[in-house]
Design a protein around this nucleic acid. Structure first.
Length: 121
DNA sequence: CATATGACGACAA
DNA sequence: ATTGTCGCCATAT
């Protein structure tokens, strides 16, 4: 059977996998959604331990302040910013505007299921 | 069991 | 806005 650790990571990866293209989420946000309040660092740990042939959009996870976790100038930083831009995310001064790109599942559902929310007729 | 570590976060200077 | 500190949670030694 799988260790609880593996399950945590799977949940984290699954959550990250739900981030739609064009949006980003903070480590803390993912942790909370994955059932680990204040477990931002665990998300970082999980990302370091990504499975071999993963197809996880790791690059959609950034810090709460909208910055890429990797130090500017590193390969990781370049890689991530490149992929984000490919997603249509604008990066200014190595930062992403969270107000605009932060992933909001609730709002997302409303936008995708209009009739469910404002079926006033 | 005690420490050290880290793709973090919040807050005080 | 930048930098330093301290808090958090799970792992590794």
């Amino acid at each position: 059977m799988k260790s609880t650790t593996a399950k945590r990571n799977e949940r984290i990866w699954a959550t990250i996998g739900d981030i739609p293209a064009g949006s980003v989420a903070s480590y803390g946000q993912i942790a909370e959604m994955a059932g680990i309040p204040r477990g931002a660092r665990q998300v970082g740990y999980a990302l370091r331990h990504l499975p071999k042939g993963h197809k996880i959009p790791w690059y959609r996870v950034i810090t709460a302040s909208g910055k890429i976790a990797f130090p500017v100038g590193t390969a990781g930083f370049e890689e991530q910013s490149k992929r984000l831009q490919r997603d249509g995310v604008v990066i200014l001064n190595g930062r992403v505007d969270m107000k605009q790109y932060r992933w909001q599942p609730d709002l997302d559902e409303i936008l995708w299921k209009p009739s469910a929310a404002w079926d006033d007729d």
